[in-house]
Design a protein around this nucleic acid. Structure first.
Lengths: 142, 142
DNA sequence: CTACTAAGTTAGACTAGGTCTAAAATCTTA
DNA sequence: TAAGATTTTAGACCTAGTCTAACTTAGTAG
């Protein structure tokens, strides 16, 4: 799975004439090893785990900057924003019981839909959301 | 396009032993002739257009009741809940410029994805979101 | 038609997620 | 090492949505 790398982010920060702050690096480090799609609050808590070092505003700033630069995708599920560090094109599976969001390989949802509409819309991308029960919930639900 | 009908809603209200209030009827009437996917606030404003008759809480109550009974679908785009009175299975097109949500015929996005995943998840449904520029924005954007 | 009462509506307090701001702190370059 | 622009910060603020307790009303029985 392709992911954001610290080196690449540092290069990008430098290239844009921005500052390399511990807060930014901590957020990137967390996202690198994150195996799900955290909300902004989850990032905030994770980064502040050992000791307070980052404010809410900084988390949003950094998350939005990473998103604007294509290092993160922002997805909305159930009205909450989640940030997806998986850079490969893929789709999502959402559990209707626990809300968990899992990645689904791009070609597991085969084949690619035809993307021309009758109107004058310009279709640039598409995404497929599968819904149902995740393995855990499927096992515990009667 | 299949839609909720006043007669059917009145029957359902009666069948559930609920009360037929002017507020409920006004909300249903608005949704019937609504050509897009309104937010709760849009419903509230539309219903209160001529004179104040409905509170925010009542709009949410009614919208959620209709959703629970399958007369409305709740969709989230950009973190806001929108309510979709189109009862036929279909997909959505979201304009990245103005946020407008348009319906896309179910079989315009052909063919149907295969819905089996490698894990133990149970896939119950899927939806496809197309993104791009709507006709209006495509015309005005350089 | 009247009165009763369960169901519904209301205003407004409250919550959560997110944005904004002005002041304080810090990275970078020279 | 100091200057100065960029960042961070706390906390006020905003918006969407929920909750509650008091009030109102639709439906019904007499």
């Amino acid at each position: 799975m392709k992911r954001l790398s610290t080196a690449a982010i540092i290069d990008l920060i430098r290239a844009q004439g921005l500052k390399l702050t511990p807060q930014r690096l901590a957020i990137v480090a967390y996202l690198q090893q994150c195996d799900h799609h955290p909300t902004a609050d989850e990032v905030l808590e994770a980064v502040n785990g050992k000791f307070r070092m980052t404010s809410r505003a900084t988390v949003y700033n950094t998350l939005h900057w990473l998103t604007a630069n294509g290092w993160l995708a922002e997805i909305h599920q159930g009205g909450v924003a989640r940030f997806d560090p998986n850079l490969e094109p893929h789709h999502h599976f959402v559990c209707r019981s626990c809300g968990r969001v899992e990645d689904v390989a791009y070609d597991a949802v085969a084949p690619q839909p035809q993307c021309t509409l009758p109107g004058r819309q310009v279709v640039e991308s598409f995404e497929v959301t599968l819904r149902g029960l995740c393995a855990t919930c499927a096992a515990t639900t009667v």
